[in-house]
């Protein structure tokens, strides 16, 4: 359940700098993520969104600055079972891997089972509960490669759910998934966020669908993070981040204007 009134930072990024080579890709990044947030991090390709995510997951180490997860410094953080991670599917996933859905989901029970021990029946119940939560209980025996892209992403959500996580991080989860499945996927995340109070952090370059669904947005661009306030025009922010006005909105308004002039013309002719 979501606890109202208490605002707790689950992720706290302070003055973080990071570089792969000579040049910094992230400079002086500050970000607070609160419990129960449904946060979207948007930005153009190559704006180091994934880098920021990997820093927050401890997969990369910042050169300067600090990152705290659930109140603990990342370098000594050990409650990894409370963190769910859904990787960028297109990059990381081997589609012909001979694993069934339940095997993939059960693998993440490691923190509950421990080294050298085997998966038992009671663990499989947790797996089925997680699959039920994402609506895939009927697919548990199927090969993961035989599912659709949308279903595969839901399997990865179920994989995160077996540990009852506090936060789920998702990296471009809807790439290559059709519009209808994308919508269902966002609805599922919303449900998990509202009903279970799971903090959700989602990275995407697809501004259109993400702004509709999340409750808070930050933009990345030019090595910086720019928070989006509801009262500032979104357009200005896009110019700041993407360097030009998005053709998407631009084109839409042009079309609208054209339609209006046409209509006026029509009326004038009549």
């Amino acid at each position: 359940m979501k606890i109202m009134g208490t605002v707790e930072e689950v992720v706290k990024v302070r003055n973080v700098f990071f570089r792969y080579d000579k040049e910094y890709v992230l400079e002086n990044i500050n970000l607070d993520i609160f419990q129960g947030d449904y946060l979207g991090i948007v930005g153009p390709n190559g704006s180091a969104k994934t880098t920021l995510l990997r820093l927050m997951l401890g997969l990369l180490k910042p050169e300067k600055g600090s990152i705290r997860l659930l109140g603990q410094d990342i370098s000594s953080f050990c409650q990894w079972n409370k963190i769910g991670y859904v990787p960028q599917q297109m990059r990381d996933f081997n589609f012909s891997f001979p694993a069934s859905v339940e095997e993939v989901v059960a693998a993440n029970l490691y923190s509950q089972i421990g080294l050298f021990r085997r998966i038992q029946k009671k663990h499989m119940k947790i797996v089925y509960d997680a699959l039920k939560a994402v609506g895939l209980e009927k697919c548990s025996k199927k090969l993961i490669g035989n599912l659709s892209g949308g279903q595969q992403q839901r399997v990865f959500i179920a994989r995160a759910l077996v540990n009852h996580p506090d936060i789920i991080f998702l990296d471009e989860p809807t790439v290559g998934i059709d519009a209808k499945s994308q919508e269902e996927f966002y609805q599922l995340l919303k449900k998990l966020n509202e009903e279970r109070g799971i903090t959700i952090v989602i990275i995407s370059h697809d501004i259109g669908s993400i702004t509709k669904n999340v409750s808070r947005i930050v933009c990345m661009g030019d090595k910086k993070l720019i928070p989006y306030q509801r009262n500032t025009p979104f357009r200005e922010l896009l110019v700041q981040v993407y360097g030009n006005e998005m053709n998407l909105t631009h084109g839409f308004e042009e079309k609208k204007a054209n339609a209006q002039t046409l209509r006026k013309k029509g009326k004038g002719d009549a």
């Binding site: 997951l57 990894w80 991670y85 990787p87 990381d92 993939v104 693998a107 490691y110 923190s111």
Partner: peptide, 12 residues
């Protein structure tokens, strides 16, 4: 074998 990064995150 399936997902080395996720395995690391799971504490393996």
């Amino acid at each position: 074998a399936f997902d080395e990064e996720a395995a690391r995150l799971a504490g393996i």
